[in-house]
Design a protein around this nucleic acid. Structure first.
Lengths: 134, 134
DNA sequence: GTCTGCTATTAGACTAAGTCTAAACCGGGA
DNA sequence: TCCCGGTTTAGACTTAGTCTAATAGCAGAC
């Protein structure tokens, strides 16, 4: 994904494409991992003439989440993780390595009507815990 | 559930039944909510002649989780929540109030074999987000 | 071009959740 | 009784994340 592509995505979502935002979005869209804010800070700081501030990383991540460019992932305690895969999907956590894998939505049957009348379900997330076989 | 019942449960799980532990387990087993450590601290502090220390609450919760007496719930960022319902079950988060409801396991179809050969699933949790109808 | 005003970025103070440490406190055996 | 292990404790510490107030930078008006 070229740099200008990312600018287009940001603009299309109503977010001004500043260098800091482009660098962070670029990093997230090219990683398979689900990094924390600190990992993002470290990974992106050498991509700009001046290192990003911690506050900017958090500001930017929150802005991108609100704009629907990225998603937050809550699989475990501690740090929030971020995911540029904004299609509706689930997660698999490898309990040995802590690695998180995306699980396509269509592997899991539709669940929202399972709860019955009392609950109006907006969305649901499945988190699998286990081990990868290799 | 009588106080002595809780002592029995703790002992059966190999945990010494100190007053602090009994009070915390007792509170968790009698609440429908999914309290945070701070809420537990506040709710239990008047149940003993001397208020519990924060460290004790965390120590105890971790001990009880390891012993399988209670479960941790990760539905949102911020504080970890605790649940004395240790049967396999899922959660519904009311996005308006933040309240968390238990969803019995049998409302959700079996999912562990859906991922195919590559993944060995130990467990999975479904978190529904939406609104309660009243 | 330059003024103006808004938004973004920044360093660093601050808050909140949780862990760690070292000391004191038990309670059950020898 | 004394000892010894586990438990509790206050408070220091760590870490994730927010807030604040100042600065930087850009886009439009003139």
């Amino acid at each position: 994904m070229a740099r200008s592509e990312i600018e287009k995505i940001l603009l299309a979502k109503g977010v001004k494409a500043t260098p800091q935002r482009v660098v962070i979005a670029d990093y997230l869209m090219h990683t398979e991992s689900h990094p924390t804010a600190d990992e993002i800070l470290e990974a992106t700081s050498n991509k700009l003439p001046v290192a990003l501030s911690r506050a900017t990383v958090y500001n930017t991540l929150n802005t991108l989440v609100e704009a629907g460019v990225i998603q937050e992932v809550f699989t475990d305690p501690g740090a929030t993780r971020y995911d540029a895969n904004i299609t509706d999907h689930h997660h698999f956590v490898d309990v040995k390595s802590g690695k998180i894998m995306d699980i396509p939505k269509d592997l899991v049957p539709v669940l929202q009507e399972k709860l019955g009348e009392k609950y109006k379900v907006h969305s649901y997330k499945v988190t699998f815990y286990g081990e990868m076989k290799d």
